[in-house]
């Protein structure tokens, strides 16, 4: 504790430096500059999994080509340690929903997600995966994968440029690094109340049944009359 006080930054004067010391990232960086390492298992864990995000080798539509382009020499997703595109969901950490999810494909996407081991992350890449995009009015197009899956990062664009995917990946890494492993907002796989398997919709006579997973997604209500 005395060390943190010696690093005379304004941040350390807060109540955080009293009991139950949990320094913020800024405080940590400041301490690091003074040669003091503050660490915990939590930080090691988050550091490890944020720097080794292996995506599933899974492409849906147009965005998949840009996803491939992001792993190619010009953009080289390998710099972030993410070029290990695993073909089997068992070894993947990240599901990049790259393209239009049709109703015929949606159950398979959810099955793939269920087959991935925790901790796992989901990126909705492109307008179609976010909301159905230009094909939203189509009868066979799912209006956003977030109706069935918990999405961590949304990358807009039609299709997003490879740089956008890299940015999304970096945002995901930052999100992982910021996670607290205890407390009410701990990640999904450390909670007892949420299951890791999501219900797979059935093919109905006219539509998928159910059309959305109510635990993940609620239909927005019309915010104005009319």
């Amino acid at each position: 504790m005395s060390m943190s006080e010696s690093a005379s930054t304004p941040a350390t004067s807060g109540p955080a430096s009293q009991e139950g010391f949990s320094p913020t990232q800024q405080e940590r960086d400041e301490l690091r500059r003074h040669g003091i390492l503050l660490t915990s298992l939590e930080e090691l864990y988050n550091w490890g999994r944020s720097n080794s995000v292996w995506p599933l080798n899974f492409g849906l539509a147009c965005c998949a080509i840009e996803m491939i382009a992001a792993s190619m020499a010009r953009f080289d997703i390998a710099r972030f340690g993410s070029e290990v595109f695993r073909p089997s969901p068992r070894q993947a950490d990240l599901l990049i929903v790259s393209g239009t999810v049709t109703k015929k494909m949606a159950p398979q996407v959810i099955r793939l997600w269920n087959q991935m081991p925790e901790p796992k992350y989901c990126i909705a890449m492109g307008a179609c995966a976010i909301s159905g995009g230009p094909f939203k009015q189509g009868y066979n197009v799912l209006k956003g994968i977030d109706r069935y899956l918990p999405v961590d990062i949304y990358i807009p664009g039609c299709p997003p440029r490879p740089e956008a995917l890299l940015h999304g990946l970096m945002q995901l890494q930052a999100q992982i690094r910021g996670q607290k492993l205890t407390g009410p907002d701990r990640p999904r796989h450390l909670r007892a109340d949420t299951g890791c398997a999501y219900p797979v919709p059935e093919f109905g006579a006219h539509d998928l049944e159910p059309p959305a997973n109510p635990e993940v997604w609620q239909a927005p209500s019309l915010p104005r009359s009319g």
Binding site: S131, Y139, N140, K143, F203, G204, A205, H206, D207, P211, A212, A219, P220, S221, L222, P223
Partner: peptide, 19 residues
Amino acid sequence: EFKDYPMRKDYVEPDDYEW
């Protein structure tokens, strides 16, 4: 399992409209 024929002019798509 799909019952409809969607390219017919009188096809009514499922109402999964979202504001």
